[in-house]
C-alpha cells in the first residue's frame, strides 16, 4: 500500500466520521429544539408519552422492584459485612450515599432500561424505516421528531429518573434491615448515618445523571434506527450499532459524572 492511498483512506475515514458526527449533532439539535418548544406537547404527544412510560417503567415495575430488593440487598449485605470486618462502620452512610444512591441506582436502572426499551426502540425505528413508514410520515409533512422521537426520549428520561430514585429508596431501606442484622443498628442510628452522608447535591447529581442516561439510551437507538437501510437485514445491524454506542454513552456519562463529583 503506497502512501497516497493510505492517506486517501485516512482522509475518507475522517470525512465519513465528520459527516456522521454532523448528522448526529443535527439530529440532537432537532430533538432538543422540540424538547423545549411548548408546541411539541400536544395531546397526541402526551398520549404517546404516557404509553411509552407505561411500556418502559410501569410494565416492568414488579420485576424491577424484585431486582432492586434482591440485588440491592445482596450487594449491601455483602458490603456491610466487609465494612464490619475492616472496622469502617462509621463509613456506612458514605458508602450507601456514594455507592448505592449515586452510582449503583442509576447504573442498574439504565442497564435494565437500555437492554429492554433501548433495543426495542432501535428495532422499532429500523423496522419503520424498512417499511417506509418514516418516509410516509415525512411525505404527509408529519414531524417525526415531534411525534416519534420526542415522546420516547422524554418517557425514557422520566422513567429512568423515577426508577433510579425508587431503586435508591428500596436499597437504602434494605440497608436498614442488613445494618440491623449485622451491626444491631436501630432505625434512628441508621437514618442519622444516611442523612448525614447524603447531601442535597447528591439528589441533584442522581436526577441529572439519570436524565442524561435516559436521554442517550433513547436518542442513540432512535438515531441509528431512523438511519437504517431499507433492507430487512439492516434492522439487526442498526440495533447492533445502536446498542454498542449506547454502551459507550453509558460509560462516558458514568466517567463524566465521577469527574464532576470529585472536582
Amino acid at each position: 500500500m503506497n502512501t497516497s492511498s493510505w492517506l486517501e483512506k485516512l482522509g475518507g475515514a475522517v470525512l465519513d466520521n465528520w459527516h456522521e458526527l454532523r448528522q448526529l449533532l443535527g439530529f440532537a439539535y432537532t430533538v432538543f429544539r422540540r424538547l423545549f418548544a411548548p408546541s411539541s406537547y400536544r395531546p397526541l404527544t402526551v398520549d404517546i408519552l404516557t404509553t411509552q412510560i407505561y411500556f418502559t417503567a410501569v410494565q416492568i415495575l414488579g420485576f424491577f422492584i424484585v431486582v432492586s430488593v434482591l440485588f440491592g440487598s445482596l450487594f449491601i449485605g455483602m458490603t456491610l459485612f466487609v465494612i464490619k470486618e475492616i472496622g469502617l462502620t462509621s463509613y456506612i452512610g458514605q458508602f450507601i450515599a456514594g455507592v448505592v444512591v449515586l452510582e449503583m441506582a442509576p447504573l442498574v436502572t439504565v442497564l435494565l432500561i437500555a437492554l429492554r426499551s433501548g433495543s426495542a426502540i432501535n428495532a422499532e425505528m429500523a423496522v419503520m424505516k424498512v417499511n417506509r413508514e418514516l418516509d410516509a410520515l415525512t411525505a404527509f409533512n408529519i414531524d417525526i421528531a415531534r411525534y416519534l422521537f420526542l415522546p420516547r426520549i422524554i418517557a425514557v428520561m422520566v422513567s429512568v429518573v423515577l426508577l433510579s430514585s425508587l431503586f435508591a429508596i428500596i436499597v437504602t431501606l434494605s440497608g436498614l434491615i442488613f445494618s440491623a442484622l449485622i451491626f444491631g443498628m436501630g432505625f434512628n442510628a441508621y437514618a442519622d448515618l444516611i442523612a448525614k452522608a447524603i447531601e442535597y447535591k447528591d439528589f441533584l447529581i442522581l436526577m441529572v445523571k439519570s436524565a442524561a442516561f435516559g436521554f442517550f439510551i433513547t436518542f442513540i437507538p432512535l438515531y441509528y434506527g431512523s438511519r437504517a437501510g431499507y433492507q430487512l437485514t439492516a434492522v439487526p445491524v442498526s440495533v447492533l450499532r445502536g446498542m454498542v454506542n449506547v454502551f459507550i454513552a453509558i460509560v462516558v456519562i458514568e466517567v463524566l459524572s465521577l469527574v464532576a463529583r470529585f472536582l
Partner: peptide, 21 residues
C-alpha cells in the same frame, strides 16, 4: 389515545414515586 387504565397506572406510578422521593 392510551386507554384510561394505562393512564391511571402511569399516573399512579409517577405520583407515588415522586411522593416517595
Amino acid at each position: 389515545m392510551a386507554n384510561r387504565s394505562i393512564q391511571y397506572k402511569v399516573g399512579l406510578f409517577i405520583v407515588t414515586t415522586i411522593v416517595l422521593v
